[in-house]
Design a protein around this nucleic acid. Structure first.
Lengths: 209, 209
DNA sequence: CGCATAAACTAGCGGCGTAAGTTTTTGCGC
DNA sequence: GCGCAAAAACTTACGCCGCTAGTTTATGCG
């Protein structure tokens, strides 16, 4: 086949297929040949639309952050904005856990990532936080959100009772994977509550830098 | 060369070389052939000592967590123990950032990882926290520590002023990479302070579950 | 109508993890 | 002291991988 009458590929179709593949089978399952097969095409054809594999993965990451709601800062208190944004971000990452390692490396050059940074940082600055404090708070929230999405805490424990025989306090740790969602959700909520309450106290006491 | 009079490889030598390579050039630079070359040996010889590449990487991760000080819980308040442990963990990860993605996936079956979980969880239980709350706090601390180590927040921003022209609040974001260490350190310290202070308040008010 | 461009193809390079089988040395049981 | 299994290196090779180069053909613009 040479050039078809109707293009078989578009950037959108490629990104969509890549996202589906990553969601379903993980980052490692995404290879150029595999992705091409999924799209009914030979491997190297993808290079007509993206220069490298990294560009495709980046586009998937960008599509994911695009789903985060950053309008929440519009007309509400910085505390509430921060909480709603964090929950939205967290929910998006929970829905697409396999792409998180890519996102965790920072906003990079992706427009939506930068727009999100702008929204968060801007809201904190507008509230009266110093530039350095706003930066710290933004970074901190990101640590909590990506950290919780990246390593499901509960999932890290093996489902094998014998493993914990030598650790008296962990004797029920093998039950953790079964409660994965509840544990991870509880830890995230606790962190969000404590962080925002603590920052709120600082703020109310006039400690804004 | 067949079997040499003196073994060329040991598990220790392999792990050490792998750790050095990962520290110096990143996870991607670690390939079986490259590692073998570094050790003056052919690639497949490594399989006489480790069954898979993943086992080698795991051993490196285990060697890194082994450096975290978990004796800090011995005879001090849970607050102080948590703070000292978190700082030690954070310092170790900061010294070996390239292995963090591996650690972030949880304690798994690694003895030192489990010993650390045991120490943290045990200290919280002994202090009177409920099992579920202790789990949440442990998970939460891990989110903060691995999250901060994984994605240097400041490093994620590109060192290119023009990139931020369209984001009014980010107009100085290109300066962030230069202050990388200070930003990341500040955010981590802020998080640690706020979290421990907040949890301490809950504790003092008798809210332990 | 002619031609540059776009979008598919095929072939192939060097690298990857690892399996299989070979050779030689070591060290233990008789 | 000897025989032989196990250990630890080797070579070869398979099927992936990301990506490059060059080819073919349809499209759309001047």
């Amino acid at each position: 086949m040479a050039r078809p009458r109707q293009a078989l590929l578009t950037r959108e179709r490629i990104v969509e297929a890549a996202a589906t593949l990553i969601d379903a089978e993980g980052l490692d399952a995404l290879s150029m040949r595999r992705l091409a097969t999924e799209l009914g095409v030979q491997g190297p054809s993808l290079y007509n639309h993206f220069a490298t594999k990294a560009e495709i993965v980046d586009a998937v990451a960008e599509a994911v952050v695009a789903q985060v709601d950053i309008d929440v800062f519009a007309d509400c208190d910085w505390r509430e904005g921060l909480r709603l944004w964090a929950k939205s971000y967290h929910a998006v990452l929970t829905a697409h856990p396999n792409i998180v390692p890519v996102l965790a490396t920072g906003p990079g050059r992706r427009p939506h990532g930068l727009a999100m940074a702008e929204a968060v940082y801007g809201a904190l600055i507008d509230a009266g936080w110093s530039r350095s404090r706003a930066t710290h708070i933004g970074a901190l929230m990101r640590y909590l959100i990506t950290g919780s999405a990246l390593g499901s805490f509960a999932l890290g424990f093996d489902n094998d009772p014998e493993l914990y025989d030598r650790y008296p306090h962990l004797h029920r740790a093998h039950e953790l994977p079964a409660h994965r969602a509840a544990v991870d959700e509880g830890a995230f909520e606790l962190g969000l509550d404590v962080l925002i309450a603590g920052l709120s106290d600082h703020y109310d006491q006039g400690v804004r830098r």
